[in-house]
Design a protein around this nucleic acid. Sequence first.
DNA 1: CTTCTATATAGATAGAAATCTAATTAGATA
DNA 2: TATCTAATTAGATTTCTATCTATATAGAAG
Lengths: 185, 185
Amino acid sequence: MPPEDFEALLQSFKALADETRLKLLGILAMREYSVEELAALLHLKAPTVSHHLARLKELNLVGMRTEGTLHIYRLNVEALRDTSKGLLSSEKMASLVHDVEGDAFERKVLKDFFEGTRLKEIPASRKKRSVILQWLAQQFEPGVRYSEAQVNEILQRYHPDSATLRREMIGEHLLQREQGSYWRP
Amino acid sequence: MPPEDFEALLQSFKALADETRLKLLGILAMREYSVEELAALLHLKAPTVSHHLARLKELNLVGMRTEGTLHIYRLNVEALRDTSKGLLSSEKMASLVHDVEGDAFERKVLKDFFEGTRLKEIPASRKKRSVILQWLAQQFEPGVRYSEAQVNEILQRYHPDSATLRREMIGEHLLQREQGSYWRP
DNA sequence: CTTCTATATAGATAGAAATCTAATTAGATA
DNA sequence: TATCTAATTAGATTTCTATCTATATAGAAG
């Protein structure tokens, strides 16, 4: 759930989203190799391979042992299995929504009362209703003046009872009214 | 196994290896949204969001319906689940080794005797068996000491007859034993 | 100690990809 | 029909990253 998770997930995908690194994993699935051997197999220079191996090692997807001056890399099978399992579990999915604005309560209310783009109902609780009204307020451009008909039309995209919604929004000063025209302050 | 698979796998990872696209999936996990709404939530311009949605749609990770001129996107939960399951299955791993040169005999033996991650059988020919045993040896971290139970557990991931495999590995000095604990030299 | 070899690190470059603005398409409205 | 809005497409810009060359480190060999 925490933002670290999001970052870790993103880094995992980035590590795997590269042709060379995927090939490295495939090659190392056969057996262990030194950096030079890998470079030869991939037709790349040693520093390039070294760089990729370092990235895979950060995530613990490969391990390394030294033999004299040789650095011999191998696949870390368990880590790879764990990674692949955990990549897109549904718990992770929930965690993806983190630094999108809004707090947890707000998100929950929106989730509960919206069915697609339509409001299932207007919440009875003042606190929840307030969340919905604030969300609706965002559908109006600040500074623009709307006729009552326009306000109704916008609100009706979300719920048939635009009159109630409009009245409540005025009550919470989310919309203001003067001479029959409305605007968002 | 074919190269198309490799390419598809790479494309899947690339699609998911982007902060904005991951956030989109997270947001859409809550409920469906129009392009404009998503752009507002992410503080991005509509064309940018449109571009990312198109990429996710290519992989069928999101779906879209139109409502007037609005294009309303939603998460394709099943596709996401399938994708996450299939991303790093061991059958895929085996397929990663495709256009890499290297010891042809060794590759052929591994290809012939592995079915996904499981050994179809233990080769009768000494030479082929040796290739398999060496591959299995790579599954052990050098220097780490394993109990017999741990050794069996690891070997049984690949073949039920862990006892034979363990004995043969000792015989080829791929594993060593002392006082009931095993290690890879 | 010097030299050679295998890796790693630093810095430069080039190619890919994300984002933006501007122009285009398609549906809704007057 | 003309106009407005939402979305996409095209093209330009900028940011990131894979790769290279050159340099530094660390162990092996003379």
